[in-house]
Design a protein around this nucleic acid. Sequence first.
DNA 1: CATGAATGAGCGTTCATTCAT
DNA 2: AATGAATGAACGCTCATTCAT
Lengths: 216, 216, 216, 216
Amino acid sequence: MANNIQNIFNESLQDTNLSDKQKTVLKASLDLFSTKGFDSTSTKDIANSAGVAEGTVYQQFKNKRGILDAILNPFIDSVLPKIVLDFTDAVKGNQFDNVHDFLTYVIKNRMKFALTNQNQVRIFAQEIFKSNKLLNQMKKQLGNLLDGPVAQQLQKFQERGEIAPIPIPRLIQFLFSTTVSFVLPAILNQQGNVTNEQIDGWTEQSVDFILHGITL
Amino acid sequence: MANNIQNIFNESLQDTNLSDKQKTVLKASLDLFSTKGFDSTSTKDIANSAGVAEGTVYQQFKNKRGILDAILNPFIDSVLPKIVLDFTDAVKGNQFDNVHDFLTYVIKNRMKFALTNQNQVRIFAQEIFKSNKLLNQMKKQLGNLLDGPVAQQLQKFQERGEIAPIPIPRLIQFLFSTTVSFVLPAILNQQGNVTNEQIDGWTEQSVDFILHGITL
Amino acid sequence: MANNIQNIFNESLQDTNLSDKQKTVLKASLDLFSTKGFDSTSTKDIANSAGVAEGTVYQQFKNKRGILDAILNPFIDSVLPKIVLDFTDAVKGNQFDNVHDFLTYVIKNRMKFALTNQNQVRIFAQEIFKSNKLLNQMKKQLGNLLDGPVAQQLQKFQERGEIAPIPIPRLIQFLFSTTVSFVLPAILNQQGNVTNEQIDGWTEQSVDFILHGITL
Amino acid sequence: MANNIQNIFNESLQDTNLSDKQKTVLKASLDLFSTKGFDSTSTKDIANSAGVAEGTVYQQFKNKRGILDAILNPFIDSVLPKIVLDFTDAVKGNQFDNVHDFLTYVIKNRMKFALTNQNQVRIFAQEIFKSNKLLNQMKKQLGNLLDGPVAQQLQKFQERGEIAPIPIPRLIQFLFSTTVSFVLPAILNQQGNVTNEQIDGWTEQSVDFILHGITL
DNA sequence: CATGAATGAGCGTTCATTCAT
DNA sequence: AATGAATGAACGCTCATTCAT
């Protein structure tokens, strides 16, 4: 499953009918946008980084914004939902009969996803402050999440009395924020190489905190 | 205290030798940068919003970047530390003899601060992805925080056995992320009017979660 | 009167709040558009010709099209109507009691106008093929002409039996085309220096032809 | 004869060694140049309209200008002269023994030609303002006209005393301008469908005016 | 101090043209 | 012969910055 996640963006790249040069353009843009920001990256920067002429950039992409969309739209429309929906199978095949194992699975999964897609996450984080459209798209996706298998599993645990009767959206908010608190520093520092051991440690600490808080 | 926070930026404004017109420039820039982003705001935008000539902007600020610095530097160098140091007095005058009250105080305090300074926070959040300097400055400030009164108070509770033996930086990370999880959506949505009642509710839920997690 | 015509465009220039540099830009554009055509003239060309920086061009004019409008709009909205309406006074002060004198006056007048404003006419002629808006504006102005003093005077002559009962629009069409047949070659050849003697000769030949045709 | 005129351009097309695709390119260019103008028509527009790849356009035509030349050169070098020279036969076979019939024939003939070739005329009219070469070519052709059968016929009428002793070039100027005054509005309005009845009416009015002017 | 016209480097984008397939 | 991806010069235009008033 972890491998699947890692490949979702690349798969979605292969789905498109972009030439090799165009994919280089997209890769270069991903790098530049994520470090310098969209506005501070010139199309000349992109062309130089990709090793193509500036005109080539516009062969496939309508305009500079189009490159950003080609990066963010799959992220929003395809990658995120895929992640969310993939749980269906995971949950079916993998009967989580205790909260601890379930949280461990979900959190580790998401950490890997975020760290694998660091650049997109950075770009997304920068753009969401400027674009109401992006913000609304994310709200919608989060809404879907609340109807999805994660929410259903959490509810099941609640009904069994294994989780406190906190509203599901709030539960997800806490899961999310705790996860992010480990991942975001790495993303901000652009630490490319986070080991599986680190992720395992972070996951354990997250699950402990989420389950029991900070009191003894 | 709440009032103090609200005024810290304004106070730090008064400390500078900026003319009234220059302050208008700064206020206008604050608004524009926070909504449109630094790059997408032109000096003409600023001049128009501030009701001054474009040249006037350059009377006090060396360049456009200088305006951003004039907004973010006090935030980093003065506002943030002031907040941190103010605790000394607060803690002295206000003996927190249980964890619950302490967390309630700290969290409510910070929520108000973040919401009062929404615009700076928005600008800060956007820029920190692009500027290593900013990132390092924040790391330094967070380092100071770890030597400050909040950390000391937490350690005291730990020594008394009222808090689990989680490393202090990690404790602060959890406090921070939980708080942010309530505040950030409001900031993203640019909800100007968050009531005290809402903040009280958010604080309560945060403290409950931080103390006991999600299990019964 | 002839002097008036000569000055109408310049007057309309003075009415605007254009700086000296901007007027230079307009003059340069007038030259370049009229010889090379609008599309083949670059804003760099204009800036170089005007001796200003390219940015200066955009200080007063929203875009390149705006310069063309600043040249053509007065021509359509102000210069042409002014010419048409000025007849009122001319006719009042100048009782034309025979067709010959009237035509001589009208045709000489228009020839001078067209030759004085050669560049605008050239630009206008090029653009009218591409712009339906321009075409419609001219139709409207020609419509106004048919309600104006020239048409009235012609009708008076018709009622007196001094002119054949040809429909007024057709009469004006013949006046116009005959006049143009003398003026257009000069404009195409960009003959700047057409003498008053030439114009007098052209006028006489035009009036002769219009009155009697080519038969003996 | 009318049919001949209609086909002259097509005939001249057949003379060339253009493939079917290339002819489509030329047709498409004719349409686009005449409506949007040469400069505002991109080679991509042409390729799309013609349903070929952009590279194909350059198979037969050296460059974009080459397409314009392929449209205008036959118009100047072959179509116009052919029209002029065809009179030889026409005049031979058709003895014009009065001015009225001759003018009627000549004018109707030219009106049809201009209306049939509206698009070329539009392109020609736009380009002649920009290209001295084109202007000189036309001057040369008009010079030939003055040595041609029309001029000879007119001179014959003059010698017989049926036409006033106006210089032949001037006579032709009047014929031309009167004809144009009917045809140009239709061309500007891009009225594709001018009926033979309309042309007959226009011709009659033209001839009347040319012969007798506007007096009774 | 404040102004705003002037600047020119640099932006995003277009497009005529080339050339390997 | 036909293609269309690739090119890069040149375009229209923006904008941070300067400076004479």
